[in-house]
């Protein structure tokens, strides 16, 4: 088991607290089937990593032939627990540590929280392990444990609406734990009573009631998904053909009310005709139904 990043500093009154869905993403992305898939998808064709547990013997002189660095984007990272996990354990998860990670969240507090969660997780990765702490688990110990050498590179976080500000064709791994709960309506992306014109200073909330309203709006943004809980997710799915690179992969979390089989069908019908969508992780069986699942989306 790889350590779960600490999120004790995150203000849970206005930022989604890691829950079953977050942990399902961590479990799925660190499962052997997914790390094997990602290693094949983003092969490093270069110098064997000296930190690799079993460096492949090579007779040729190592050379730095390029293998394009993957860009990992999480939409709606919230507390940052998933993005921090991906960044801190990059070498274990992607079989390479030259990965870039970026987070985009509609909630500015989540952007700040994510940046801090990633910073702490990368720092903790660099701390020497306590003697014997993970000795028994053997292979579970991160590569370079105690040396802090397994972490990737965090670009930062930005406030925004899904992938609207992301350059076409640039994302190699996209992770989205969406607002998936069916709700009668969607919360506003803008602060109520504030100027809300994306860019100015946040309006100072003067009353406790107003502050509570604002916190409720921010939390609602993290879970409220409108019709079938799919209104936000459908917008992201429609943007995938443009934003993913040709080797790009997306991991999307769905709940049973999202009608996941229909969603997978829609994805397979996206423009281009080569789209694959498979369930690669599930949790929370209820009456024979998987409550949550992770769908991997890619082009063959």
């Amino acid at each position: 088991m790889l350590p779960t990043p600490s999120t004790s500093h995150v203000p849970y009154a206005r930022v989604y607290e890691p829950a079953e869905d977050s942990f399902l993403l961590l479990d799925t992305l660190s499962a052997p089937s997914e790390t094997a898939f990602l290693a094949t998808r983003f092969p490093i064709t270069t110098t064997p990593n000296p930190l690799s547990p079993t460096p492949t013997p090579t007779t040729t002189t190592p050379s730095l032939s390029p293998s394009p660095t993957p860009l990992i984007l999480e939409i709606g990272p919230g507390s940052g627990v998933v993005l921090a996990f991906l960044t801190a354990h990059a070498h274990t998860l992607f079989s390479r540590r030259d990965v870039l990670t970026l987070g985009i969240d509609v909630n500015r507090f989540a952007c700040a929280a994510t940046r801090e969660t990633v910073r702490r997780a990368v720092r903790d990765d660099a701390l020497p392990l306590e003697v014997g702490a993970e000795a028994a688990s053997g292979a579970g110990v991160g590569v370079g444990a105690g040396l802090g050498t397994g972490a990737g590179y965090h670009l930062g976080t930005a406030q925004g609406d899904l992938v609207g500000a992301v350059r076409a064709g640039s994302v190699d791994v996209l992770v989205f734990n969406p607002p998936y709960v069916p709700t009668p309506e969607l919360p506003s992306m803008y602060q109520q009573g504030g100027e809300g014109e994306g860019g100015g200073q946040a309006t100072t909330t003067t009353t406790t009631a107003a502050a509570y309203e604002e916190d409720s709006r921010l939390l609602a943004l993290s879970y409220a998904g409108g019709r079938d809980g799919m209104e936000i997710t459908d917008r992201l799915i429609e943007a995938l053909p443009e934003v993913l690179s040709s080797r790009g992969v997306a991991y999307l979390l769905l709940c049973a009310q999202n009608k996941p089989e229909e969603v997978k069908g829609r994805i397979r019908g996206l423009e281009g005709g080569l789209w694959q969508a498979e369930t690669v992780g599930t949790s929370g069986k209820q009456a024979g139904w998987e409550k949550l699942q992770i769908v991997r989306i890619w082009r063959e």
Binding site: I104, V106, R108, C111, A112, R115, G156, T157, A158, Q159, G160, D161, G164, A165, M189, Y190, G196, E197, G198, G199, G200
Partner: peptide, 29 residues
């Protein structure tokens, strides 16, 4: 790292604010 300032679009001239290292790409309605 860019900590403060603005990011300006060369096409529409819209300015995106960067505060405390976080750029804001939410568009005005």
């Amino acid at each position: 790292e860019m900590n403060e300032g603005k990011l300006v679009c060369g096409n529409c001239s819209h300015e995106y604010a960067v505060r405390e290292g976080i750029a804001n790409f939410l568009l005005p309605s």
